[in-house]
Design a protein around this nucleic acid. Structure first.
Length: 373
DNA sequence: ACGATACCTTA
DNA sequence: AAGGTATCG
């Protein structure tokens, strides 16, 4: 059976690129709740699905290592693909070329780094997904200069950046997030992919699937199946949103929102069932290139009030549209055009799972010393 | 436009 | 209550 790749077992099937921790920290970036599908499958090794393939990533010093798995050996699936593309010899040649390259990699026992067209493409996928062209360290400096409170948190929570996720995955994942907690959302998204997504490969008994297509989610019976899978009232939102996108627009429509201004994209998303201001802003920020979008949830609302004395008149139970707007505008004015990125860092620092990072370093060292003695 | 409440589950 | 949204006074 195939296993998750481990860098320590040999770098022959791994590639790497230069990327300091100040620009990217996998634990924060993949674990802060902007995506729900990455898991730590080994010490410092993160496995997940990106651009339709399964990847394992890990960081050593200033190097980001990545391994891409080949597709699952599924005779039925392969035959289906062959029949489908029987007339397309160009496609088949390309496919065989890719397979040959994989074979070469597998057979290559040496540590020498060979580059190929595929490697170049893989690196480009990775750079795009992590938006590595955005210089994060410079942004932290700017946010810190403008906001002393941010500076304190930013020192500990460095290297947290927004992903450029697939809009389909982002939208349907965050429709699941309403009135819900992260652990349950992760389970729901996993079941969603397992039930409606194309299988990719199996590693250590874990089956990896691509995220479902909008077409798959728009099918008639989907709502009932999702109910049975414990999605609750969100089952209807998922199916109806998928249906509405196909009936009012087309499968590529979500991607086209990347070319629209923030407020237009946001307004378009708000028309979908199960999508309110918070979910719309999550999709804008995390998949549609709207770095100024600030999703205001209960955490952010509390941070705004408690740490910034913003929206003081928010004694009410419910978050009104007006207060939502006020809080977003406040942070945009404070942090600038990448306010959404900055917001996610304070949000992350507020999560229970990351509280241990806030322990005072001296105390931590004392503890370590006490342990080693 | 504002403010409250129900909504599926699970921790 | 949990990283909300739709609906109704």
């Amino acid at each position: 059976m195939s296993q998750h790749a481990l860098l320590s077992l040999g770098a022959k099937a791994w590639r790497c690129l230069y990327c300091p921790k100040s620009e990217l920290r996998l634990d924060l970036t993949l674990g802060c709740g902007q995506t729900f599908r990455w898991r730590e499958t080994g010490e410092g090794h993160w496995t997940g699905v990106m651009a339709g393939r399964v990847w394992t990533l890990t960081q050593i010093d200033d190097t980001l290592w990545y391994h891409v798995y080949r597709r699952q050996e599924d005779p039925d699936h392969v035959n289906r693909q062959k029949r489908k593309k029987a007339g397309d010899s160009q496609e088949l040649r390309k496919k065989f070329k890719e397979m040959a390259e994989v074979k070469v990699e597998e057979d290559d026992k040496s540590l020498c780094v060979s580059t190929s067209e595929q490697d170049t493409k893989d690196e480009e996928v990775l750079r795009d997904y992590f938006q590595l062209s955005v210089k994060l360290e410079d942004l932290y400096k700017e946010w810190g200069d403008a906001d002393p409170h941010f500076r304190d948190t930013g020192i500990i929570f460095s290297g947290l950046r927004m992903l450029r996720q697939d809009p389909v995955e982002c939208l349907f994942s965050f429709i699941c997030s309403s009135n819900n907690h992260i652990a349950r959302i992760q389970g729901m998204v996993e079941r969603l992919c397992g039930m409606f997504g194309t299988p990719l490969c199996e590693l250590d008994g874990t089956h990896y699937h691509d995220f479902p297509s909008i077409e798959a989610l728009a099918e008639r019976g989907v709502q009932a199946q999702l109910r049975a899978l414990g999605f609750g009232y969100r089952a209807r939102f998922l199916q109806e949103s998928a249906h509405q996108i196909l009936s009012s627009h087309n499968p590529k429509w979500l991607h086209t929102l990347r070319n629209d201004p923030y407020l237009e994209a946001r307004a378009a998303l708000l028309k979908l069932p199960g999508v309110g201001p918070k979910v719309a802003d999550c999709v804008c920020l995390m998949s549609l290139d709207k770095s100024e979008a600030v999703p205001v949830d209960t955490h952010v609302r509390r941070i705004a009030k408690h740490d910034y004395s913003c929206a003081a008149e928010s004694k009410q139970k419910t978050l009104t549209n007006k207060v939502y707007q006020e809080i977003g505008d406040f942070f945009r004015q404070l942090w600038g055009p990448y306010a959404g990125w900055a917001h996610s860092i304070l949000f992350c620092a507020d999560l229970k799972k990351f509280q241990k990072l806030k322990e005072i370093p001296t105390i931590k060292e004392e503890n370590n010393q006490a342990k080693s003695e």
